[in-house]
Amino acid sequence: MRVAVVEYGVGNLNSVCRAVQEVGGDPELTRDPRDIREVDAVILPGVGHFGAAARELEETGLKDELLDVVGSIPVLGICLGMQLLMESSEEDPSVEGLGVFRGTCVELPEGVKRPHMGWNEVRFRAEEFSEFDGSMFYFAHSYRVAPEDDRVVLAVTEYGEEFPSMIGDVGKLVYGVQFHPEKSGPIGLKLLERVLWGADR
């Protein structure tokens, strides 16, 4: 399986690629929209700022291409990549996200340490992911998604408040995770495999 790992901005993409390899995929680091058409799955990794990332996706033409493949192949947004699936973010209200899911991104509440950094429990509501229920995954973020439609929330996590830690449309194969599966040990790799291949593998 060829998996495009979309390269925008800077950060640790090596770990995402290695994790894809570890579960048997063939990662391709790319910032060329044409590559998105050729692959079997897409990962939108997550580092940096919403504004800069959203602008980069828009300017490079990656945004249109990504929206084009949603629904036909698995698409996974990780951390900021998850937030980019929303329409907007309080982090930079002047730009638009991909708008795959309706809603925005908000800052984590006052009274808890920000960033939310470390391992936290993820409670899965979606039956498709029930085997992961209660496992701990690694988080590093200060904003979180606030989808309008509660039905897209596949998992939640508690940090000062309950927030969506995984969203998705199982039928369309499009998912967003606030945690880093590529940094969450064996359980994270397993989840990555599940998202890319589905339950049949």
Binding site: V10, G11, N12, L13, N14, S15, R18, A19, E22, V47, Y138, A140, H180, E182, K183, S184, G185, P186, G188, L189
Partner: peptide, 24 residues
């Protein structure tokens, strides 16, 4: 496949970039 932090002798943005792109 867990987080890695690198420190020691980091004094430029370029050093951040090198470490992060290597997998930190």
């Amino acid at each position: 496949f867990i987080p890695m932090t690198v420190g020691g002798g980091i004094s430029k943005l370029e050093h951040f970039r090198e470490a992060l792109s290597a997998g930190a």
